[in-house]
Write a protein that binds this DNA or RNA. Structure first.
Lengths: 178, 178, 178, 178
DNA sequence: GATGAATGAGTTTTCATTCAT
DNA sequence: TATGAATGAAAACTCATTCAT
């Protein structure tokens, strides 16, 4: 059912998606959707929560706290692109929400993003990044990753390694030679 | 009048924006909007054209073709953040469009983006970047810039130099001094 | 529901009829009308189809192929006035459509009219009418019938026999005594 | 200016005609149209008045009070079809109005029609028609003429004589051989 | 638990009509 | 006198949401 929502939200965006379309895609009737999720926002939030959790879990599980900076970054980037590669639709929905920052959805996606941000900041700090700049830098890196993911959707033949390496190379700029 | 459209499109996205809201924001009546732009898509396109042109011009004018890699990147990043800083709403609209790729809008924004992308790629290539990776790298850099801009708006006290330097540092990772 | 459409289309014509008015007349809400018929044209077509079929069936059923010219004309005229008498609104709508020949409606009414026209022409021909003039003559006869129907509504006390006899008398002019 | 109105009303019908279109067709600005005619109905009425007067005058002038029944009918029918033949657009507008019977226009066209009706009744009576049936019969005849005119618009190659003769033949049925 | 049928509120768009110049 | 610019009101159509069954 959330899968149906994913397809529809991804294809049409939040506004463009109709409850009719979601119910039809799920093969059930509209009142059922309302029964379970209460409103359009309800199912949207439920979907975002699931997708955000999935992405976040992947990244947390991929981390290797004892590894080198490069190993950790590579693992994180790999997990991220792995999610995007297997979840084109899901990524589109998350991405749209990141841009729109719908008030009613508020924290939902921001929380997920913040968690990733925190993980990244921690890695960079531990590895010797300049504390004053780590915050902005981490944000720039996540942005680079997001845009690389967008780019990937448009160039699906690009091997994931190129994406990961590009991102890791950029991250290297954060921790100037100590 | 396009300024009113900017505020409304930025706040609500294309779908969420109503012609009523645009007319009210502009302080005129709906039929006037139709008189000048013909349709919702019409005013949206007109707005995108203006915003895209503004941003592109800034970046083209700021470029210093004879400068060093760092000088050129610094100039470009400065122009970009200058636009974003003075044009938050405009940036939101452009970004939404980049992501959504509305069919009816077609080339409009893609053209502008491609021009910036081409400029950046050219700079990186001229300065010795790896030709196979420049494309993805350029996209990652613009994404980093976008996210830095967002971060800036949340931390308005950060000096623009920090943003520029962060971005330039990341760009440096593309063409390591060989 | 088509009955409501009949009243509204009859009173205001196609252009003048609003979906609001039709829904109100039917005692339901506009979206229901759209649910069943899809568009204004949709309900208009559905109505025309029903009215045209009703009229045509009446006339076909009333015909007595083995009868004399006069008997057949009398039967046909009687069926026609029977329809008009019980269906003033329907007749108005059909006539408006015949005149306007709305492109989108295309064959719908033309088909019905042609069938009646063909029936009448056939009768006249079989009974010795001049082949070169039967076409125009048949049309003149239907026009006479239409106007007689209008006159009838303004003079409701006139017995239907007078109308029928008048029409049959006029038809007699087509096939002068051989 | 009324000529412009004629073209537009004829092509689109009353509802479909827009004041913009009329003003454009006339080569002047909308406020001028309002200045002269006050409203859309105003110019419509003015047009109908002119067209109705033209048709009526033609028929009155064509009458030959001293002629035989056949001569008078032939003259009248000839005048009528002469108007239609030279005034396709005008006839279309008059015809639409006859069918729709717009309340606000009320008498305008009815008056013209009544005058023709009266003329015809008078002729028939003078020539020995059955007084009880002349009224309905005259109406049937005008209806036959109107429909023949419609038919003519669809078959423009038909010679006018056929139309006239058809109509006169039908009229002959009214005045049974004395 | 499930749905077909229903709708209030809102969307884009058009048009007769007027005002400021 | 003439018009470019402006608008109130309404039309077709859609959609999130809710009953009655």
């Amino acid at each position: 059912m959330l899968d149906a929502a994913e397809r529809v939200f991804s294809a049409s965006g939040f506004h463009g998606a109709s409850m009719d379309a979601i119910a039809a895609e799920a093969g059930i009737s509209k009142p059922m959707v309302y029964n379970y999720f209460g409103s359009k926002e309800g199912i949207y939030l439920a979907y975002l929560a699931r997708a955000g959790r999935d992405l976040l879990n992947r990244m947390l599980e991929a981390d290797v706290p004892d590894g080198s900076l490069e190993e950790r970054l590579t693992a994180g980037a790999g997990a991220f692109f792995g999610f995007v590669g297997q979840n084109h639709d899901g990524w589109r929905v998350l991405r749209e929400e990141m841009l729109q920052q719908r008030e009613s959805v508020g924290g939902q996606v921001a929380t997920m993003r913040d968690a990733i941000h925190a993980l990244l900041s921690e890695v960079l700090l531990e590895e010797g990044g300049d504390p004053d700049r780590v915050d902005a830098f981490a944000r720039a890196l996540t942005g680079a990753g997001e845009s690389l993911a967008d780019w990937w959707l448009e160039h699906p033949d690009a091997p994931v390694e190129v994406l990961v390496q590009t991102l890791v190379a950029m991250a290297g700029a954060a921790a100037p030679p100590r």
